[in-house]
Design a binder for these strands. Structure first.
Ligand code: MN
Ligand code: MN
Ligand code: MN
Ligand code: MN
Lengths: 237, 237
DNA sequence: CTTATTGTTTCGGTATGCCTAAAAATTATC
DNA sequence: GATAATTTTTAGGCATACCGAAACAATAAG
C-alpha cells in the first residue's frame, strides 16, 4: 500500500526515525519516537502501522522501528529540505541560528522540489547547515563527519567543533553570546574534581579562552579530531 | 467564538472572499466561492457557518457572504503574504511569473510573521507583486491603482498596463513570450468587425507592435489611464 | 399563480491524526 | 518461576475538512 504524496505527519515521523540514529545507533522505540514528536504513545502505534502499510518502516509489534529503503530515501530528502531551509534563513534572511529550527520544521513540508533546488543553487549547494549537520545531496548521498561528543573526550585531546546540537535554542543563544561557533579550535584540559564541569580551551577567531562547560553543554558539542585518519563516512545515494 | 490561529482552510476562504471583490464589486455567493476553492457547495455552507461563528463573515442563509472587520484584516494579511511570497520567488529565486502562484498558495500558510517581514525588508517593501496586484502594507493599508479592463476601453484610449490577472498560467506564458509586460504603454486601436478581437498597439521597451487580442486576453489586462486625475484608492489600515 | 429550475443548506458518512483509558505483552524483581 | 512494573498496542472518541445525496428556498417559466 502506498500514498502518492506523504502527509506532513508522515514526513515528520520518518525524519525523526532517521535523525535518531544519525549521531548514535540505539534503535528507536515507540516511546522515544512519541517523546521526540510530542504525541502520545498510542498515536505512534497507530501511525507506525500506517507507515508499515506504506512500506516506509519495518516493525514487529513490541520491538524497535527501522526504516526501509523507501523510508530512508524519504527521510533523507526531508533532512535535506530541513537543513537547506535553515541555512537559507540564516544566510539570506538574517535569522540567528537559534531561530531557524521551528520555521524550517513547517516550511519543509510546504515548499516544492523546485523551491528547494533553486535555494540550494543560490546557496552554492552547501554541505552543512548552521549547526554543522550535514546536508544530504540531491541524489541522497550524505557525508557525515567523524566526530565525538566533547564530554566523552580525554584531557589533552584537540580538534575542531564540527557540530552543535540544535535541540535546545537557549543553549544555542548561550554559545552565540560566548562566541563559541562552528570550526572553533578546541583543547580539552580536564575536569573539575568529583565529576565537575569539563574544562576546555576554545579559540574561535581571537585569543583562546578557557571555559567550564556543564555536561549539557559539552555533550551538545561535537568535535572532529585533526589526526590524519579521521575522515567522514559517506552514505548512499 | 474565536480560534487562536486560523487553519489554512479558513485563511484561504477569507482570502478568496476578499479577492473576489478586489477588482469588481459583485458580492460572492456560496457557489462561486466553492468554484474558486475547488470544493463542493456543501463544504462551503458548513465552512461559512464556522467563519460566522468565529466572527470573520456576515451571512444570512441563502444570501451573499461578506467579510467583517476582523475578516478583512485577516484577508488583507493573507493577501500581503501571498503577494510578497510571489515577489520573492521571482526576484530572489528566479521563478517565472507563471510559476509562483501555486507555490505561494501553500507557503502563505506556513511561514511566520518574522519570515514575511524579513522578506519584505529584503525586497525593499514592494508595492505590487509580479502581476501588478497591490501588496498591502504591514499596517493593513492598500493602494489599489485605478484601472480598467482593456476589453472595456474605447478606441483611441491610451495608458499603461498596471495589472495582469494571474488566474491562467498559460495566458501568462503567452504574454511573456510576446514580451507583453507590466508598465507597457498601450493604445487601443479598435475592434475587428462583428465583435472580433481587440486591436491594440503595445510598446514594452522596444518598438510598439500591434496585437489582435482574444477576449480572454484583453480582459486579463488592466490599464491605468494617464490623464492627470486618475489616482488610486487607498484603503485602511 | 402554480410548477420547474436553480441555488443553498442539511444529513449521513469518510479520511487524518490526535487523545485517554483499558488491555496485552514484555521485562524486571523477588 | 511467579508476580510486579513498564512498555506497547487496542478500543472508543474527538476535531477538522471534505464528499454525495436529499431536503429545502428562492427564482424563473408557463
Ligand atoms: Mn516538520
Ligand atoms: Mn540544524
Ligand atoms: Mn492558500
Ligand atoms: Mn499575484
Amino acid at each position: 500500500m502506498k500514498t502518492s504524496t506523504p502527509s506532513s505527519s508522515i514526513e515528520d515521523y520518518v525524519k525523526v526515525i532517521y535523525s535518531f540514529t544519525e549521531w548514535q545507533d540505539k534503535p528507536i522505540t515507540s516511546t522515544r519516537l512519541a517523546q521526540r514528536l510530542g504525541v502520545a504513545n498510542s498515536s505512534v502505534s497507530e501511525m507506525v502501522r500506517k507507515l508499515k502499510d506504506q512500506g516506509l518502516v519495518d516493525h514487529k509489534p513490541y520491538s524497535a522501528i527501522t526504516l526501509t529503503g523507501d523510508g530512508v530515501r524519504l527521510a533523507v530528502s526531508m533532512v535535506r529540505r530541513h537543513r537547506l531551509i535553515e541555512t537559507f534563513l540564516v544566510q539570506e534572511l538574517g535569522y540567528r541560528w537559534d531561530e531557524v529550527h521551528d520555521e524550517a520544521e513547517l516550511l519543509e513540508h510546504a515548499v516544492s522540489d523546485t523551491f528547494i533546488e533553486r535555494m540550494a543553487a543560490k546557496l552554492g549547494n552547501p554541505l552543512r547547515d548552521p549547526h554543522g549537520d550535514p546536508i544530504p545531496a540531491a541524489d541522497g548521498s550524505v557525508q557525515v563527519p567523524a566526530a565525538h561528543r566533547m564530554n566523552e573526550l580525554d584531557a589533552g585531546h584537540t580538534g575542531r567543533i564540527t557540530r552543535i546540537s540544535d535541540e535546545n535554542p537557549e543553549l544555542l543563544r548561550y554559545l552565540a553570546a560566548e562566541e563559541i561557533d562552528l570550526d572553533a579550535e578546541v583543547e580539552v584540559l580536564g575536569r573539575r574534581p568529583f565529576g565537575g564541569p569539563l574544562v576546555v580551551r576554545i579559540g574561535s577567531g581571537g585569543t583562546p579562552r578557557e571555559f567550564d562547560l556543564a555536561e549539557e553543554v559539552a555533550s551538545a558539542l561535537w568535535v572532529h579530531s585533526e589526526d590524519a585518519h579521521a575522515g567522514c563516512s559517506v552514505t548512499g545515494p
